[in-house]
């Protein structure tokens, strides 16, 4: 890519104030989220949530840059001079991606610097987990989606009578955990269980005979908490999530002739659909609102599962990094296709 094509897009997307605004913003976010006194408990997710404003802002900056170039007659010049129509979209997306990468790289610095000064988080996070089904001495749990490998299930039992020695917990694959009265049972999740987010545990006959009862309110998922030094990796995931959205803005604004702000809003709406846990709708009728809900659910189901790239905020560790490489590849393929559709391809006679 020629620098002379790249730089105008880069300048238009970054703007003059970004050189100050992004580092200062990252610093303020770090103070608000990670400071031991000012920040919330487990503030790393909060810091990542602040950082996610940067990709959102860039969606609008890219839309604005496309609008400005259209206003300035540059789209006409592109059509006249570049019949294949590939140079300007390539320059635009490369500038947007590099601006995103540069901004997130700046955002990665405060946690890294802070990790040298403060004690990094080492304790795992605990999350409640839904019990989907229950049978005699067997329970099926549902974490609502994939969870990080390395997580474990913490179970507490009460007893009608003290069990004999040999009371054990099965995980359905033959792995056993001894159950000690008065102790929390920790059962690590296998890789396939973490990927599916659904897992079953059962107690053996001895425990069942002793009247083992699971204390449901105390069921917890123990999830490893990423340390501050993982900031580059976590912000890299934000890049992987937001980069295809920039391609979507380019497609809607250039090919679809939508206004830049509208294209950015559409990308934000799609990001929201992808980033949040899917909502459960028990029963849908045939009214207009139901049809809309069906359409949204169908769209959500058709899109790749990339929640693991966009996990931010409190409890982000439950979802971060859980997207499969296939889903991430599919998501990038969609983004690349969006950019590809911006090329005109046809040649004038």
């Amino acid at each position: 890519m020629r620098l002379v094509l790249f730089l105008p897009w880069w300048r238009a997307i970054i703007g003059r104030r970004a050189w100050i605004a992004v580092p200062v913003g990252a610093l303020i976010a770090a103070v608000l989220a990670l400071d031991p006194v000012l920040g919330p408990e487990d503030g790393f997710g909060t810091y990542l949530a602040y950082c996610s404003l940067l990709p959102l802002a860039l969606l609008f900056r890219l839309g604005g840059a496309i609008d400005a170039r259209r206003r300035d007659g540059l789209e006409i010049e592109e059509a006249l001079r570049d019949p294949a129509g590939s140079l300007a979209p390539s320059a635009a997306i490369l500038a947007a991606w590099s601006a995103l990468a540069a901004g997130l790289a700046v955002c990665a610095l405060p946690p890294l610097i802070l990790s040298l000064a403060v004690e990094d988080f080492t304790t795992p996070a605990l999350h409640p987990v839904h019990i989907k089904a229950q049978d005699t001495g067997a329970w099926t749990f549902d974490a609502g989606g994939a969870i990080p490998f390395g997580s474990a299930l913490l179970l507490t039992f009460t007893w009608e009578q003290l069990p004999e020695a040999g009371a054990e917990l099965h995980d359905g694959a033959g792995v056993l955990c001894p159950i000690q009265p008065g102790e929390i049972v920790r059962s690590p999740l296998r890789l396939e269980e973490a990927r599916s987010g659904q897992f079953t545990r059962m107690v053996n006959e001895k425990a069942r005979a002793a009247g083992a009862v699971l204390v449901r309110p105390l069921v917890r998922l123990e999830v490893p908490r990423p340390p501050l030094t993982a900031a580059p990796r976590l912000l890299g995931r934000q890049f992987m999530f937001a980069a295809p959205l920039l391609g979507l803005v380019l497609l809607l604004a250039r090919r679809g002739r939508a206004g830049g702000a509208l294209a950015a809003l559409a990308a934000v709406a799609l990001a929201g659909l992808l980033a949040f846990d899917p909502f459960e709708v028990p029963q849908l009728g045939k009214g207009p609102a139901d049809l809309l809900a069906r359409a949204v659910l169908a769209l959500r189901a058709a899109l790749p599962e990339v929640r693991g790239l966009a996990a931010v905020g409190r409890g982000f560790e439950l979802r971060t990094g859980t997207s499969s490489p296939w889903m991430v590849t599919a998501w990038w393929l969609l983004g690349t296709l969006a950019v590809g559709f911006c090329f005109r391809w046809r040649k004038r006679p």
Binding site: R2, V4, L5, P8, E77, D82, L87, A88
Partner: peptide
């Protein structure tokens, strides 16, 4: 710089 960009759009090197 504006004309440089237009020339590059037509495939010219820097």
């Amino acid at each position: 710089e504006y004309l440089d960009e237009l020339a590059a759009l037509a495939g010219a090197r820097a």
